[in-house]
Design a protein around this nucleic acid. Sequence first.
DNA 1: GATGTACTACGGTGGCTCTCGTACGAACAG
DNA 2: CTGTTCGTACGAGAGCCACCGTAGTACATC
Lengths: 121, 121
Amino acid sequence: MTDTATTRTLAHPGPAEIRLEAVLHALSDPIRLSIVRDLAATPDELACSYFDLPVTKSTTTHHFRVLREAGVVRQTYRGTAKMNGLRGAELEGLFPGLLDSVLAAAAAEEARRAGRKVPAK
Amino acid sequence: MTDTATTRTLAHPGPAEIRLEAVLHALSDPIRLSIVRDLAATPDELACSYFDLPVTKSTTTHHFRVLREAGVVRQTYRGTAKMNGLRGAELEGLFPGLLDSVLAAAAAEEARRAGRKVPAK
DNA sequence: GATGTACTACGGTGGCTCTCGTACGAACAG
DNA sequence: CTGTTCGTACGAGAGCCACCGTAGTACATC
C-alpha cells in the first residue's frame, strides 16, 4: 500500500533536458554500449532480463538507470518485466547522425579487434 | 642529470590502440569537449596556453593528457610551447563520421541552449 | 495466501577523476 | 647568469562511479 497511483511510470528527461555530455558518458561504458548496440539491433523493446551481462542484477539496474537518465533509452513496465527501447528518433532529432556513427564505430572497432585477434593455432 | 636524450617527444597511441570508449569518455567532459571544438575550428595547431579554461594549469595539463592518451589530439613541443592538433584524419579512418557528428551535436546543443535562454530582461 | 520472477533500494567498498597547490624542468630574453 | 614563461610531476583531497550483497516491492500464477 505504498500508494494508490503507484508510480508505474519512470521519469525520463524530455528532449530539452538531454545533454550531450551525459549521452557520451553513458555510451562510454562498455557494458552500456553493448546494451545500446543490442537495442539498436532489433525493432522490439527488450526486457532487462534479456541481456546477459557480466555483472549482477544490481549493477545492471544501475546501468539501465544511467542510460535512461541520460535520455538514451525509454523504459516502461510491462507486468513484472521492464522493457527497454532506444530513443532513436528523439536522439536523431537532437543530435543528427550521432547515434548511428557511434554504433558504426562500435561495429568497426569490434571488427578491427576480431581481425587483429591471434588467428593462432 | 635527468637524462641526455630527454624525451622531448610524447607518447601517442597508434591507430590500432585507439579505443572507442576512451574517445567517448574523453569527449564526455565539458572542458575537453570545448578544447576539441576549438581545435576543430581552426586548421592550425594551438598551444595549451591559447585556451582560456576555468581551471588551473595543472588541471589543463591533465585534460590534455586524457585527450592525447585517448588518441584524440596530437601534441608536439615547439620551444616552450606545446602545440595541440586534432587527429581528425586518423579518427575519421577509424570511426567515420563520429567526430563530425559529435562536433555538430555540440554546436546544436549550444544553439539550443542559447535559444532557450531567458530572453529575459 | 503462497511461491516465484523481475527488478529496485540501500548500504558499502575500491578505484578512478577532477580539482588544486606547490615545486620543479626546459626554453628563451635580457 | 637571471629572470620569465610555459608546461610537468607530485601529492592530496573531494566526489563520483562501477560493483557487489542483501533486503524488499510489484506482478503473475497457482
